[in-house]
Write a protein that binds this DNA or RNA. Structure first.
Length: 419
RNA sequence: GGAGAGAUGGGUGAGUGGCUUAAACCACAGGUUUGCUAAACCUGCGAAGGAAGUAAUUCCUUCCGAGGGUUCGAAUCCCUCUCUCUCCGCCA
């Protein structure tokens, strides 16, 4: 959500920022509606003040047992006007909100301009592509050959874009999530949460999925949605709060399933478990003071990276261009992991600084020197567990079809070294 | 799922139609006093928005869980909903 005062006094900059994100010029319309709303408000408030005065007078007259019928008639006329103006104000307010709630965040000045993923720029790289003295397989070939990844069974249960994991690979998923949570809670300073996987509208409006992107989500009944990421419940923990400055920064993490209908992605990555309706993820969320959010994004990125470093898997980090960023983000880094079987880099984490965009939607502020200031929110995957599993299978595969267990995960397997 | 009781500022909590401009206490901030700490005393202290002004500031409106309604006037009365607590039932 955008600051209407900012739009009012920086309309050109605002239009330029929206243009970077593929939106059309809209500030003049916003300003016009806002002006009409405020004019309505002023008249309305004057009438309310008048009504209050007369009502008070009526009280005084009546307490003396005198006749107040003239005043009552007067107030009756004012009331009619008040009702009309109230409706008008409501209409203008709704109009304004429905526009503002659908406009994406303003890109950070360091974000490269671009249209789509081809314009993302390389930020940094770690490690190097591993060499195989055989033809490395895709993750699903490895898993299916072992009899531990099964898409047919999943489709019997639930249709396409689901997977059934078994025995050692199922256990690998569990080990990965434990490893990530242990790392983030014990070394990276995040507090662990277990959270609801069903949330209501307000939460999704808070983080920006609604009202615009409902078709990417699954619903559960009339009042709940399945979370597309733990970002939603983790960030909304502070919805409608005025925090104390000494509570900040808040760093929290949670391991949850994520549900995405991915309506727009039909036909993309249909093979394997790369793009599923349901997957698990360890999410990182930070709530910080505005001045801290730039450096907090770097910190968060480092925390996400630390997982891949410990797993010793090659990756690169891309700075997303203005046209490829998510709705709520002002700046996003994608960590892309190297998948030898596929021969491609694939997104395994996305770390975003949402500046005060979500905070305005959620109404989350902190008190500093007696002023209430909107916090900045950040979120990042730390990491997507399913895709980490894919990366391990493909990077740790052996010629005989088995897979080595990364050293840091061996303790979750009674120190075994092979799956 | 059934029956009952609740929801008031950062916290506790008073307020059952106009005397509330939401009391009081606690917490918090500033000050006074005392040799320091502590204590005592004084002062200040919710949020959102609008109007005027260069500004400090002043005036006004709204908000007592949410949304409707009654009334000249609602924290207070009525309706709907949400949540919390207690008891019962069911259940992992």
């Amino acid at each position: 959500m955008h600051n209407i005062n900012y739009i009012r006094s920086n309309s050109i900059e605002f239009d330029n920022a929206m243009k970077l994100r593929g939106e059309s010029k809209i500030s003049s319309k916003i300003i016009e509606i806002d002006k009409e709303k405020r004019e309505t408000q002023t008249i309305l408030q004057n009438l309310l003040a008048e009504r209050n005065k007369i009502s008070k007078k009526i009280g005084e007259i009546k307490s003396k047992n005198l006749d107040a019928s003239a005043e009552m008639k007067n107030v009756d006329e004012i009331k009619t006007k008040i009702n009309t103006l109230k409706e008008l104000e409501q209409i203008k307010d709704n109009e304004l909100n429905s526009i503002l709630l659908r406009l994406p965040n303003i890109p950070h000045q360091s974000v490269p301009f671009g249209k789509d993923e081809n314009d993302n720029t390389l930020y940094k790289e770690w490690g190097s592509k591993p060499n195989f003295n055989f033809e490395p397989k895709m993750h699903y070939e490895i898993g299916e050959n072992m009899g531990l990844i099964n898409f047919d069974l999943a489709s019997k249960l639930s249709g396409s874009r689901f997977v059934v994991l078994k025995n050692q690979i199922s256990k690998l998923e569990r080990a990965i999530s434990n490893f990530m949570l242990d790392k983030h809670t014990e070394e990276n300073g995040y507090a662990e949460y277990s959270l609801p996987f069903l949330v209501k509208n307000e939460s999704l409006i808070g983080t920006g999925q609604l009202p615009k992107f409902g078709e990417d989500l699954f619903t559960a009944g009339d009042e709940h949605w399945l979370i597309p990421t733990a970002e939603v419940p983790l960030t909304n923990l502070v919805r409608n709060e005025i925090l104390n400055v000494n509570q900040l920064p808040i760093r929290s993490t949670s391991y949850t399933p994520c549900f995405r209908s991915e309506a727009g992605a039909a036909g993309k990555d249909t093979r394997g478990m790369l793009r599923q309706h349901q997957f698990t993820k360890v999410e990182l969320v930070s709530i910080v003071e505005p001045e801290q959010s730039d450096q907090e994004l770097e910190r968060m990125l480092t925390c996400a990276e630390s997982i891949l470093k410990d797993l010793n898997i090659h990756y690169r980090i891309m700075t997303l261009c203005s046209g490829d960023m998510g709705f709520s983000a002002s700046k996003t880094y994608d960590i892309e992991v190297w998948l030898p079987g596929e021969g491609k880099y694939r997104e395994i984490s996305s770390c975003s600084n949402c500046s005060d965009f979500q905070a305005r939607r959620m109404n989350t502020r902190y008190k500093s020197n007696d002023k209430n200031i909107f916090v900045h929110t950040l979120n990042g995957s730390g990491l997507a567990v399913g895709r980490t599993l894919i990366a391990i299978l493909e990077n740790y595969q052996m010629e005989d079809g088995n897979v080595k267990i990364p050293e840091v995960l061996q303790k979750y397997f009674n120190n075994k070294t092979l799956l």
